[in-house]
Design a protein around this nucleic acid. Structure first.
Lengths: 199, 199
DNA sequence: TGTATCGTTTAACAGTGTTAAATAATTTTA
DNA sequence: TAAAATTATTTAACACTGTTAAACGATACA
């Protein structure tokens, strides 16, 4: 009976619609705006129907992160294919990674646990700039006798901060590295950047 | 009347108790476990009382992030004071930053928007390892003819990933940098690491 | 002692994820 | 075609969330 196939096809379609609706809601109002009832509204059903397709809300998020990793991998492969030299390939791949993060911001957020809401408020705190100011001063001193421009110091600071915050984030959400590996990455990164600052 | 003072002191104390209770709950069960009613339970009151001290839940989070930035700044200053050379100071400060992140994990999370829950599940996805595998291969090729050990490649990979994921995260939650600054940081970081890999 | 103020709680509202039961629609069987 | 069985969908409910308004209790002031 071909009607079975048709029904299966429809089921697969609503399964897909649920994901699309979810992503649409998130893109419009952020991850906090995503609720089962809103998804149901979007696909013109009521909430419990969703549980016929996904066991719970977490399963929807999981499927979205899966899609995210697949899409990212595709982008990386495409970037690689455009070059022959490994150095060029690597550079292109990381730039593709960068582009993906902002083109598919919501996916990147759920893939790697980057919150945005909680830091909306931190921006209002004057205290949030204190750590930067403290480190900024030392970078300026380190560059002496050369007097660095704001732009120059800024780049140094963010290079530092990125590698350290990145390593911290990765370890917090992933807990994959050994302490030795972390210390190694940290040390090589820090001393490398310091050396590049000093000349 | 000194009783006014006593009452003010008590008020200040419960204001503080609310923060302590919140942090305790979060440390025990993560940020998802934090609710107004649980805080009330902890300080042996009912929920609406909390609104006499903080206008809403967000105000509590904001106060915790403020405490976090203050504590981090203190740690950075202490680290700086232990050395005289700017290079040594800088190294010590970033190591203090690192230590703070894990010693006060919950504070760091709310300060910089690092989620942990959503990536519990991503670990189960085989797809989550695809991007690493793709880039891993190119790093190995780039190191040829030297055949890198697993540990060596791992450190290179995480150095790359850290700086890029860090820069992405910072931009997502902060949106502070100009595109030119970002591109500059990205490019210098990438080419720098690539050069260090090639010899 | 009566009144006003303050501290605190109870009750409620709108929202969340999720489940069980009731209903509507469809398909299968007689 | 009519009845039965199965499937699709919804309604109602539960326990929870943040938050507010009203009621209650105690305390201080006249």
């Amino acid at each position: 009976m071909a009607s079975k196939d048709r029904i299966l096809r429809l089921k697969e379609e609503t399964r897909c619609n649920i994901l699309d609706a979810s992503l649409k809601i998130v893109k419009e109002g952020g991850w906090d705006a995503l609720s089962m009832r809103k998804i149901a509204d979007e696909i013109e059903y009521t909430a419990p129907i969703i549980y016929e397709y996904y066991s719970n809300k977490g399963a929807i998020l999981l499927e979205l992160t899966r899609k995210g990793f697949l899409l990212l991998s595709k982008k990386l492969e495409e970037a690689k294919a455009k070059h022959r030299l490994p150095a060029k390939q690597l550079e292109a791949m990381w730039l593709a990674y960068w582009d993906f993060a902002f083109a598919e911001k919501e996916l990147y957020q759920v893939m790697y646990g980057v919150e945005t809401t909680c830091c909306e408020m931190a921006k209002k705190l004057p205290e949030s700039e204190m750590p930067m100011d403290l480190i900024w001063d030392v970078i300026v001193e380190l560059m002496l006798p050369h007097v660095g421009t704001e732009e120059e110091v800024c780049i140094k600071y963010y290079t530092f901060w990125s590698v350290i915050h990145g390593l911290i984030s990765i370890n917090m959400v992933n807990r994959g590295n050994t302490d030795e590996t972390n210390q190694e990455v940290l040390k090589t990164a820090i001393t490398g950047i310091i050396r590049s600052i000093k000349g």
